[in-house]
Write a protein that binds this DNA or RNA. Structure first.
Lengths: 306, 306
DNA sequence: CAATTTCATCGATTTTTTCGATTGAAATTT
DNA sequence: AAATTTCAATCGAAAAAATCGATGAAATTG
């Protein structure tokens, strides 16, 4: 005889709430039901799962084993029903979208309203994290897709580019001879400030400008664009700002100088598991994101003037 | 609401037997019960899992998904109850032991009676396969331990040596000047026959004798010791025979010539997953195997004379 | 085309699950 | 130390479910 999923749920709730009463109400049953369920589980397995020698609700070592396996099973069971629901309407229900920090705050104002309009039944959950961790989450099934910057090695995952994003140079006002455009070589005359390691923006900026890490100013470790911009604002050096960030108003009060052809760029794209939640609707979502990132400019301008 | 394990069992049986009636009896229920169970599952998920447009019992693509996840869940549920049973008596119940082909037939006559006596409540299942595949099975949890030859790289697995096994040279009668012992160098004067690639015995023999693969006779691909011995018997060359095999009577009718010091050897040992079935009783099992492999000699002699 | 096999369906029955109330034991408050 | 509160276990009754046996409809076989 096999243990029942319901019993494993009880055990799970018990671990989480450390109390029969609270666990019971979390499971929407009475305490007696949960109590009986646990007892049944123990009878079935022939082993106690909770340690009754001590006052607190504590699992036996074996109980911990059961709990661990049980959690995995419950997760898998949940995945089944989720797949079923997605099949009923691929554009409804939760969609967990990961976005890297150098895109998220500047793209969200565009994404949120567009998704709300195009996919009204979809609940969008945003996970902001570095590329490496987003890909990890994709593999784990913790997120369904990742909005990130390319090139980036994504093995066993599908991906598609949405748009090319230009970089502009940002520098404190008056630090540079007034010029309308600049060339890549002009960077050599300044201290180039970049984000700390781990941010793909750092790597893409280095690559786009054919800079070596040594040519960047390493004393400060900025872990976010706003921090980086503050440094620039105080005259510590120059930096490369992605278009979207620059247009969001982040560069207000700075000189934002576009590059002459060929301007340095990075690619913005979507990445997802071929067998995952997105699979059936990747085209639709790509279109929506494409629209989100272009309407973004209008929104950005609105924000800037406000 | 979550699908019930029972329903997933039904689906599983249905896939396996391709018939409601047969699946039902495999589950020890009537066909109507199974039918209702499947229907319930489909109602719960809001999606059909079996394709009713065609006559044969066929799963919908979604059904295949459910089946796959369901199987994993059932396996895990089974693992839970198995762990519970093992906890009740670690020396009772099934123990799946893998053994490599160059050990199995010669060690089993020793192992089986010893295990029967020491662990009367244990059901021993023997899986004979090459080392690489046994290790794979260990990782998958398909077997609990592997009796194999060392050295062999076993990552993430625990292992212990049981005994050193000497090799003896085997050659057709009269092909070699009558000598009581031989040296490793004497091998150079003969065609050395070994098992085909994949058998660790091949590698260990090569290593033990400091032979290069080129010095062996490659025209024949023997995939078992008995075949190899037949070649030797017909005068194709000489081979290295593990002690246990030689004593089992396999070398009857051949000249079996022991090596002078240092005799070539291989190590026989046990390998298991640290978290696995064996963990709590590895010492006991090691002792039993050690006894099995030494009593083996007595038994082998008995067999030889018979 | 008759016989048989196969799956779906229905009502009856058994089994399981859940609840509400109660108890006893431990912890907390008075 | 007594009273109160909290907590888990237990019991009988009620509700829910799983299962069975019988029957029907469709397809397959002989």
């Amino acid at each position: 005889m096999l243990p029942k999923l319901r019993q494993l749920e009880y055990l799970n709730a018990l671990v989480e709430h450390r109390s029969f009463v609270r666990a019971a109400e979390a499971c929407f049953v009475t305490q007696s039901t949960l109590s009986a369920g646990i007892k049944e589980l123990e009878e079935l397995l022939g082993q106690p799962v909770i340690d009754r020698s001590i006052k607190k609700v504590t699992l036996t070592p074996f109980g911990q084993d059961v709990h661990k396996d049980g959690q995995a099973m419950l997760k898998q069971a949940g995945a089944i029903v989720e797949k079923a629901q997605i099949l009923k309407d691929p554009l409804a229900g939760p969609l967990r979208l990961g976005i890297i920090p150098t895109i998220a705050p500047y793209a969200l104002p565009g994404i949120l309203p567009v998704f709300e309009e195009l996919f009204p039944k979809m609940e969008l959950h945003i996970h902001e994290d570095l590329t490496a961790r987003l890909l990890e989450s994709l593999h784990n099934g913790e997120i369904d897709a990742a909005l990130m910057a390319f090139p980036y090695p994504v093995k066993n995952l599908q991906s598609a580019i949405i748009k090319k994003e230009r970089f502009v140079a940002a520098i404190a006002k008056g630090q540079m001879m007034a010029q309308k455009t600049m060339k890549l070589n002009d960077l050599k005359n300044h201290k180039v400030l970049l984000l700390e390691d781990g941010h793909c923006l750092r790597d893409h900026a280095l690559a786009a400008c054919a800079l070596s890490p040594k040519e960047t100013w390493q004393t400060f470790r900025a872990s976010s664009l706003p921090s980086l911009i503050e440094m620039v604002r105080h005259g510590y050096g120059i930096t490369l700002l992605p278009d979207m960030a620059a247009e969001s108003g982040l560069g207000n009060g700075l000189d934002l100088i576009p590059f002459e052809y060929p301007a340095p760029t990075r690619d913005i794209g979507l990445c997802w598991r071929p067998s995952g939640r997105i699979h059936a609707i990747s085209d639709t979502v790509m279109e929506a994101l494409s629209e989100s990132l272009s309407t973004h400019e209008a929104i950005a301008n609105r924000l800037k003037s406000a």
